[in-house]
Design a binder for these strands. Structure first.
Lengths: 151, 151
DNA sequence: ATAGGGCTTCAAGTTCACTTGAAGTCAAGC
DNA sequence: GCTTGACTTCAAGTGAACTTGAAGCCCTAT
């Protein structure tokens, strides 16, 4: 079973060598060493790195990613089922992110473009005192749905 | 026309006062000053701030946001058409981000969960030498479509 | 035998988007 | 008149995710 040098892993994964060393120091990937001290990565590390980079695209921190990768077995190459489990645990996160963007797009269409120049009457982007009294922020954009003002 | 103190803007927008001052220093918002030197924001600043925060959710840097806000008029309150134009210029960006996530989700479903343990044959997550020879990274995940290996 | 390329460590530096702290001003209320 | 709270500036600090630099090791090729 041939292994990858850091240079090869870097080329294949698209991550800088310094980033890969950083990932190792943060426990995101592992390596063994040759007799002269060079890192050797197993081939499935390529998949781990792809996973890390993909998850970053979704806006996840390395810490979150690291803890997700904990669910993979340490002592053997992850199997189909291992990755499947991980994949499924990610779905809700990705779905949520898409939903957020979708909401954002609709609100931009419906509100920023709506012409309601008086913010008092803008029910979408910033619902004014009603939401202000609830707490913080333009929350209609970032998760809450309108229509819960009374609880 | 009543104006907002930084405290009011902070409460309404959900951004910390220090962040709002930072935004001003970065040219994302503007303010006038009272005789005693306190900031006063026009009401449409609330919309600007909402916009900034919304755009950050999409993963945009303040620099990108700042340059987008440049398209709004400096010398008058932005009109319906101004925001409409801005909104429309955003749509492709949001659509692209959603498409990215969608691709990511599908690839996770289809690839990370696919059981193809041999990376040589994994056509999705890391297409191996074919893509490696093209340049960098797990590019199928981050924008390119497969099937362009020949150009 | 020496030059080059690829690797090593470790400390320090960078960028972004803020936050924190110190010291001060101002207006209102008791 | 004195305190309180909201504001002011400015410099420095923070945390995440790296990058950069310096100094050195090891193997191959000329």
């Amino acid at each position: 079973m041939e292994m990858l040098t850091i240079g090869a892993l870097s080329k294949r994964s698209g991550g800088a060598q310094s980033a890969l060393r950083y990932y190792e120091s943060e426990g995101l990937v592992q390596s063994t060493r040759t007799s002269s001290g060079q890192r050797r990565f197993t081939r499935d590390t390529l998949r781990r790195v792809s996973f890390v980079r993909a998850a970053q695209q979704v806006g996840l921190s390395l810490e979150e990613i690291r803890s997700a990768l904990q669910s993979l077995p340490k002592n053997r190459t992850p199997t189909h089922e291992d990755w499947q489990r991980l994949s499924e645990s990610w779905r809700p996160r990705i779905d949520a992110q898409i939903a957020l963007l979708d909401r954002l797009r609709n609100r931009l269409d419906g509100c920023i473009g709506c012409g309601c120049l008086s913010l008092e009457y803008c029910q979408l982007l910033n619902p004014g005192d009603e939401a202000a009294s609830l707490g913080q922020g333009p929350r209609y954009l970032i998760g809450d749905e309108p229509g819960e003002g009374q609880r």
